Computed example of a mutant assay.
Amino acid sequence: MAGDRGLFGPRSVTWQMHGDPMMWIAGVRALYLQALHPRAVRGVLQNSAAFQKNKGGRRDAWGRLMRTADFVGTVTYGTTEAAERAGATVRGIHRRLSATDPATGERYGVDEPALLLWVHCAEVDSYLHVLRRSGYPVSDAQADAYLHEHRESARLVGLDPDTVPGDRDALAAYFADVRPHLALTPEARQVDDFLRRPPTPTALVPARELLWTPVAELAYGALPPYAHELYGRPAPRPATVTRRLRVTGGLLRAVPPALRWRLPPRHILRAVARLGPGARPAPYKLCRSAAILGPQDTQGELRD
């Protein structure tokens, strides 16, 4: 294949996983989880276009979600230059933003390493958890490889890669350390309300109830038990959530990739045009690697 392979390349775990349609549900789970960190969620609510009204009195909820998807797609499938440029843009925005603790009056930057690390870990944990639980074939060694790969995406947003969990054990240890600091704040309740009922024109409310509500409910159900306890809302039994994730994953994956990839922002189509048909992401490529190689070799083979 000719052309720039980007930060990860077509043989990486990231390249295969991020082409899966369950990434949308995983992204919503990440938002639910991220909102439980008081300092992080405060920075979001005080700055995000999804929650702050523009000059026209409107909130750009859907636009904010699409910009996040565009960033993930660019970092995964874009050229190295495009990914680095996207990271520089995010770092520049974060440097200019701050939040205020209403209880103490403390003002702090949203680019504090601890806050960036929480956002990063909630994202990669959600991507791995939802895809694996929904039946996507990621082995333990490949899951570790995925987390190792995403030290690179952490670097893009301003983190030192050496401080970022690079395997499942390190990620579990990180969550164990941070859990005592999580809480259901008024800001987290706002995020919960937003995710359950995002601002929608009146004419489109029925479509929201039909298409969005099941996604939000499934993402909430996929949260860890401690998150359900903090939110104080019941969730289906774990076995029920797993069954629904598998059914949903099966239905979405039955849609031909050529159709799914035509939806915005179309990063996969551009990557395939740049690198050739062999760059198409597919679950079977992970299965093939796992079948041919042992766990340690698999992790090395999948990294370009």
Score class of each variant (00 low, 15 high):
Pro10Thr: 04
Pro10Gln: 08
Pro10Glu: 10
Arg11Met: 11
Ser12Asp: 13
Ser12Asn: 10
Ser12Gln: 08
Ser12Val: 12
Ser12Ile: 09
Val13Asp: 02
Thr14Tyr: 01
Thr14Ala: 15
Thr14Cys: 13
Thr14Gly: 12
Trp15Gly: 15
Trp15Ile: 14
Gln16Val: 09
His18Ala: 13
His18Ser: 11
His18Gly: 04
Gly19Asn: 10
Gly19Pro: 09
Gly19Arg: 06
Asp20Glu: 15
Asp20Trp: 09
Asp20Ile: 09
Asp20Leu: 12
Asp20Met: 14
Pro21Met: 14
Pro21Leu: 09
Pro21Ser: 10
Pro21Gln: 13
Pro21Phe: 07
Met22Pro: 04
Met23Gln: 11
Met23Gly: 07
Met23Asn: 07
Trp24Ser: 09
Ile25Met: 06
Ile25Tyr: 00
Ile25Pro: 00
Ile25Ala: 06
Ala26Leu: 08
Ala26Lys: 06
Ala26Trp: 02
Gly27Lys: 03
Gly27Tyr: 01
Val28Thr: 14
Val28Asp: 01
Arg29Met: 00
Ala30His: 10
Ala30Val: 04
Leu31Ala: 14
Tyr32Glu: 04
Tyr32Cys: 04
Tyr32Lys: 13
Tyr32Ile: 06
Leu33Arg: 05
Leu33Ile: 04
Gln34Gly: 01
Gln34Arg: 11
Gln34Trp: 00
Ala35Val: 07
Leu36His: 02
Leu36Gly: 08
His37Gln: 15
Pro38Ser: 07
Pro38Trp: 07
Arg39Ile: 08
Arg39Asn: 04
Ala40Trp: 07
Ala40Cys: 10
Val41Ala: 08
Val41Met: 08
Val41Thr: 14
Val41Cys: 12
Val41Gly: 10
Val41Glu: 04
Arg42Phe: 01
Arg42Ile: 06
Arg42Gly: 07
Gly43Gln: 09
Gly43Cys: 09
Gly43Glu: 05
Leu45Trp: 03
Leu45Phe: 01
Asn47Met: 13
Asn47Ala: 12
Asn47Glu: 09
Asn47Gly: 11
Asn47Arg: 13
Ser48Pro: 04
Ala49Thr: 13
Ala49His: 11
Ala50Ser: 14
Ala50Cys: 06
Ala50Met: 07
Ala50Leu: 05
Ala50Gly: 15
Ala50Pro: 05
Phe51Asp: 03
Gln52Trp: 01
Gln52Lys: 15
Gln52Asn: 10
Gln52Leu: 14
Lys53Leu: 12
Lys53Arg: 15
Asn54Glu: 04
Lys55Pro: 01
Lys55Ser: 11
Gly56Pro: 01
Gly56Cys: 02
Gly57Leu: 08
Gly57Gln: 11
Arg58Asp: 12
Arg58Asn: 04
Arg58Gly: 03
Arg59Thr: 14
Asp60Pro: 02
Ala61Val: 14
Trp62Arg: 12
Trp62Pro: 07
Gly63Ile: 13
Gly63Lys: 12
Gly63Trp: 06
Arg64Phe: 03
Arg64Ala: 11
Leu65Phe: 12
Leu65Arg: 05
Arg67Ile: 03
Arg67Gln: 14
Thr68Arg: 05
Thr68Gln: 02
Ala69Asp: 02
Ala69Glu: 12
Ala69Arg: 09
Ala69Val: 09
Asp70Phe: 01
Asp70Pro: 00
Phe71Arg: 14
Phe71Val: 08
Val72Arg: 02
Val72Asn: 03
Val72Gly: 02
Gly73Lys: 01
Gly73Trp: 00
Thr74Lys: 00
Thr74Asp: 00
Val75Arg: 03
Thr76Ile: 11
Tyr77Leu: 14
Tyr77Cys: 13
Tyr77Phe: 15
Gly78Trp: 02
Gly78Leu: 04
Thr79Gln: 00
Thr79Val: 01
Thr79Asn: 00
Thr79Ala: 00
